[in-house]
Nucleic acid binder design. Structure first.
Lengths: 320, 320
DNA sequence: CTGAAAGCGCTAACAG
DNA sequence: CTGTTAGCGCTTTCAG
C-alpha cells in the first residue's frame, strides 16, 4: 500500500491519522490507494504503540438480564460515539468469575465498568489497582481513581413505603435480592426511614429473577402481608404470575410493587407500581466517569415513584 | 520482573505460556516473581505477534433487546469458556451503522457474529471479505467462509396458522416486523404454506418492539380479524396491553400469538401462545461456527409451538 | 514536507 | 534447558 502510493509508511500513517503536515497532493494519493487496497491499520499495533486500546470493558452478573442489557446499550452507544469499542463479560452471578473477568479485561481496556454486587472489598481493591480506570455500578469503594454510579435505592423503598402506608397498609413482605448483594442492602436501608416506621416488614429470601419471584410467593404469604415490595420488577412479574395461579387478585387481595421500571412493567396486568430508574442514564453517567475531566466521585441517581394499578388500599378482611 | 527472577524475558514467556521446556526450579521462581509484581503480559503485544486477538465480535441491531441480549449471553459464555473475549456493538437498527460497526470490528476480532437484517447484500459481502471469519444470524449469504444460523421462522408461522385454523379462525392479522428485514420475509413465507391456505391474512405494518405492537393494534382491528400473529413476543405483549385498554378480552374476543417465546411470555395474562426458539442455543450454534472443524454451511434451528391461553376458538359473532 | 530508523512488549527461531 | 535476537505493524522522533 505504501508501495502503491510510492510513499513511506510514515507518510501513510500521517495521512490516515490526520492533522499532520502532509502536502494535499500526496495525501490524496495515499487516500485513494488506501481505499483501493482496502487498507486499514492493524489495531493491535496501534494499541501497542499508543498504550491505549480505545476500548472499555463492561462486566455484569448477567448479560441476559434486560436491566444490564440496557446499561450495556447505554455505555456501548456512548463509547461508539467517541470511537471506542466495548468489551463485555457476563459472570453468571459468580463472585469468582466477577473477579477473574474483571482482572482479565482490565489488562485490555482503557476503562472498566464493573457491576459486581458480590465481590469482596479486598478483591475489588485489587481490580481497582489493575485497571487503568474503574467505574462501579451500584457500589462504592474508597479508592482514588475509582468512580461510582449508584442508584439511591433506599429512596425508592422509602417512597414505596410512604405510598403503601398512605394507602393504609401495615404488613409488608419484602422479597429480598441476591444474598449479600450491595444493592439489596441499599434497598433495606429504606425500611429504616421514618416513612416505614409504622410498617411491619417481613423479609423473605428471594433473588433477582422472574422465577425467583414466583417461587418466593408462597413463603411470603405465610406472613399474611397486605402488600409485597419486590427486589426488582422481574421478581414482581413472577409474583403477579404466581398470585394469579393462586387465585388471588392484585391489588384487590394484595398489593405488589417492584423496583426499576423494566420495559414490560407498564404492560403487565395490572400495571406495576414501581420505582423508576433510567438504565440508559445510568450507562451514560458511567461512561462520563471515564473521561478525565470528570471527578471520580460517586454520582447518585434518583428515580421516581411510578404508581400504576398493582397497588391499592388493603382489603378490609385479610384474605383466606 | 525478568530482573526480579534473574532470568531472560524469553524464559518468563516460556513459563507463563506453559508447555515449554523449563526447569521446574526456574519455573517456580518466575511464577512467584510474577505473582509478586502482579505481572500480566500485554495483550496487544501478544495479539500483534500471534495475529489473533482471541476475541469475537457481536454486532446486533439493539443491545437492549432481550432477544439479542440472550444471544450475546450465549456467545459470550461460550467464548469465555475458551479464553476468548467478546466485543459488542449495537447499531440502533441503522443499516449504515451495521456496516460501519461490522467493518470496524472485523479488523479487531478473530470472528464476527453479525445480525444485520437490513444491510444490503453487496455490503454484507464486503464485510465477509474484511472478516477473518463471519457468522450470520437469521440471514444467509452465498460465500465461502461464511456460516449462518437461521431460525426457520416460516415453520413457526406455519405451525401458528395450523393451530389457529384448527381452532376455527379464518381472518388473521399479521403484525409485520421491520421493513425489509430478512427474518420478516422468512415469516411471511409461512403464509404461503398449505396450512395457511384457508386463511385470509391481513398484513399490518408494525415493527419489533412493545410500543410498535401497541400502536399497530387499532389499524389491525379495522380488518376485523379474529386472531393476530405478531412479529415477535414483544410486539404481542404490546398488543395485549392495547387490547386490554380497548376493553377487548383475549382470547374471548380475539386470539393473539407471538414468536420467540421471550422470558416474559409465560407470565403475561393471558399466557402467550408462541413459537419458541432457544436464543441460548442460537448463540451456542453461532459460536460453534467459529471453530475451524465446523462446516461453514447454514444451520437451521427449529422451534416448537407453545400453546398457552392467548389463543382459543373465535367468538360466534365478531366483536363490536 | 517527507523518509529512515527506533521501539512499543512480546514470542519464535536460533544458538549455546 | 536458557539467553540472545529478530520482528509482528504501527507511529513518532530525528534528519534531511
Amino acid at each position: 500500500m505504501a508501495r502503491l502510493a510510492e510513499v513511506s509508511t510514515a507518510t501513510v500513517s500521517r495521512v490516515l491519522s490526520g492533522g499532520k503536515p502532509v502536502s494535499p497532493e500526496v495525501a490524496d494519493r495515499v487516500r485513494v490507494a488506501a481505499q483501493d487496497v482496502g487498507y486499514r491499520p492493524n489495531p493491535a499495533a496501534q494499541t501497542l504503540l499508543r498504550g491505549s486500546s480505545r476500548t472499555v470493558g463492561v462486566v455484569v452478573p448477567d448479560l441476559g438480564n434486560p436491566y444490564f442489557a440496557e446499561i450495556l446499550k447505554g455505555v456501548a452507544s456512548e463509547a461508539a460515539a467517541t470511537e471506542h469499542h466495548t468489551l463485555v463479560a457476563g459472570t453468571d452471578e459468580d463472585p469468582e468469575q466477577e473477579y477473574r473477568s474483571a482482572i482479565e479485561l482490565a489488562r485490555w481496556v482503557d476503562g472498566l465498568l464493573l457491576c459486581a454486587p458480590r465481590m469482596s472489598t479486598p478483591r475489588l481493591r485489587e481490580v481497582a489497582e489493575a485497571a487503568r480506570r474503574l467505574v462501579l455500578i451500584n457500589r462504592v469503594l474508597r479508592h482514588s481513581a475509582v468512580g461510582s454510579v449508584v442508584v439511591d435505592y433506599h429512596l425508592g423503598v422509602r417512597a414505596l413505603c410512604e405510598h403503601l402506608a398512605s394507602l393504609g397498609h401495615k404488613r409488608i413482605a419484602y422479597l429480598q435480592g441476591p444474598t449479600a448483594a450491595w444493592s439489596d442492602q441499599q434497598r433495606q436501608r429504606g425500611f429504616r426511614s421514618p416513612e416505614a416506621s409504622g410498617l411491619t416488614i417481613f423479609r423473605v429470601p428471594c433473588g433477582s429473577t422472574l422465577v425467583d419471584g414466583q417461587a418466593a410467593v408462597d413463603e411470603a404469604l405465610t406472613y399474611k402481608p397486605t402488600a409485597m415490595i419486590c427486589f426488582n420488577d422481574h421478581v414482581a412479574v413472577g409474583v403477579l404470575s404466581r398470585l394469579r395461579e393462586l387465585g388471588l387478585s392484585v391489588p384487590g387481595d394484595i398489593s405488589v410493587a417492584g423496583i426499576d421500571n423494566a420495559p414490560m412493567s407498564a404492560h403487565t396486568d395490572p400495571g406495576l407500581t414501581t420505582y423508576a430508574v433510567s438504565t440508559i442514564e445510568l450507562g451514560r453517567q458511567a461512561w462520563e466517569r471515564f473521561t478525565p475531566r470528570v471527578t471520580t466521585a460517586t454520582t447518585h441517581l434518583q428515580g421516581e415513584l411510578v404508581i400504576r394499578s398493582s397497588t391499592a388500599p388493603p382489603p378490609h378482611r385479610p384474605h383466606r
